[in-house]
């Protein structure tokens, strides 16, 4: 464990909690892409199956359980508890355009052709594109509430910190996970455009982030 990865995991946890609290306190999921949240729950479900096969550390187990619980709680709030505020007209990204290539690629490119490895690889590739429905929804509505942008900021920060973690581990441990790194870099690139808008619009105190 290094400070970059720890900060990345904390940033990821903060993002998930920000979103969950926003929905719970405002009793509404307007402007939130339920599809992205379902994809994230799927990412955790397919990646954390090793909870039942290997013990890494208490931290590892606790964080995986927390991420699973919070992501399912978020999906529950969106599609069940506050479903009447779910903005389905604007949450129209075709997730099959993400799932089909990701499934295909995880069968082609993996470390071993075993169920756990293919599911892990699937979760890595899926996480890279899971935010697309949310970013698409923001471009469609032309704006995002500031809390939603904070959620996206911390998600992007988590990815940027993981890249720093991989640079650190490469130099300190000679560690290099090609699938995770390539997919992680692609995922981080998707946030760059958002980061620019976040800094230029949200942090300038405009409150909402409205796209040009």
């Amino acid at each position: 464990m290094n400070i970059f990865r720890l900060a990345g995991d904390v940033s990821h946890l903060v993002a998930i909690i920000i979103l969950l609290l926003k929905i719970w306190r405002s009793k509404s999921c307007a402007g939130i892409s339920g599809k992205s949240q379902v994809l994230f729950a799927l990412v955790f479900s397919t990646r954390y199956l090793d909870l039942f096969t290997v013990f890494v550390s208490v931290y590892n187990v606790v964080m995986k359980v927390v991420f699973l619980a919070l992501s399912y709680a978020t999906v529950y709030l969106i599609y069940m508890r506050f479903r009447n505020s779910y903005d389905s007209e604007n949450d129209t990204f075709r997730v099959e355009f993400l799932l089909v290539p990701v499934i295909g690629l995880s069968f082609l490119e993996n470390y071993a052709f075993t169920p756990l490895e293919i599911l892990w690889t699937f979760s890595i590739f899926l996480e890279a594109v899971a935010i697309m429905p949310q970013l698409f929804m923001i471009t469609k509505t032309g704006e995002a509430e500031s809390i939603t942008t904070h959620y996206l900021f911390f998600l992007g920060l988590y990815r940027a910190l993981y890249i720093a973690n991989w640079v650190w581990r490469y130099h300190m441990e000679g560690f290099f996970d090609q699938i995770a790194v390539v997919s992680g870099v692609v995922q981080t690139i998707f946030y760059c455009d958002f980061f620019y808008l976040y800094v230029t619009r949200v942090l300038r105190g405009k409150g909402k982030m409205s796209l040009p």
């Binding site: 995991d9 990821h12 075993t114």
Partner: peptide, 10 residues
Amino acid sequence: NRQDELKDEL
């Protein structure tokens, strides 16, 4: 390779 190495990242 990575398969038998411990996957310790979240």
